[in-house]
Amino acid sequence: MTTALPGTAERVARFPFPFAADTYRYSTNVEPARRTVPTAAGSWGDRVLDVDAAYAAELELRREVLQRDPTRCSQLPHMRVAAWDALMTLLPELAATYPGAMSLQQRGDRWLWRNDLIGSSTSFVPGDEDSLPGGPLRLLGSQIQEDVVLLDQREGSLWADAGLVTFAADWSMGFDVGMRFLEVHGPVPRVHEAGVVQRAEQFLMRLQPGEQYRRTNWTMTVDRRLDSSTETYPEWGRDRRLVVDDPALPDRLHLRVEVQHLLRLGVSNAVCFLIRTYLLPLRELATVPEWRRRFAAVLAELPDDMADYKGLTLYRGAAVDWLTAG
């Protein structure tokens, strides 16, 4: 593979290492967006949309995934306003974060989007589907590394009624579209008894226009495989077994961290859920002694049902062994 990837130094320095203690349990771990978090190796978190050295490569990967399987972008008809709202909220956000490279300009009814990082420009009329083939979510997904889920709020619940998700960690946007928030999380162990999902939903339903929060979630992935969706499970499932005895385990096994932003969109009242995925191989993680020790402790202590749900069961012993052997 010759795709340019961020170098080790940058990847480690900007990695959102998610563990604040030596044990991990699900919690409603939300905090205000845009606050910089210092880590043992650098910092992360000063922005909502993050462009890094893998930008062009990840956008190209998303294009290929969508070409093979258009259901990764699923939108129920009533989410039309929310989809435009997400586009018209996040393109300006992107331009404000990278002003030298991107811009959004209004010319009468039309808006012009220019992105010099990938040499793209396009124009459209907000609210007019005919002006934008593919629709607002597809344009948005071609400009940001983040996956997007849009939650509608009605009948006292949130509903996952639209999304563009090509980098899912073992779930399927196409299957889940149209579910209540609590139903989407139905298969996750422990969180319901603990009230975590219910509390998260209550919190999200109270978000006011323009409010922005974030949380992190994590799992592990074999190889730098962003598309580890349920759809492609037949392609990657056996790697969970093969990696165990592979001498390349520390290079193949990655800590996968999702930085999830939660934004209340102003026009549509939808909650925009952005999922940005960062992958760091164990070998690079281990260059930071504190991370090496802590991740080994978290993995070793993690209850079996949580490890099983995250798909770690086959290789977590091997991972702990390698991390603690150094």
Partner: peptide, 14 residues
């Protein structure tokens, strides 16, 4: 009319 957005229109309130 030409307007260039310099800040997100729907950003969090100050």
């Amino acid at each position: 009319m030409t307007a260039v957005l310099s800040a997100p229109p729907a950003a969090a309130t100050e």
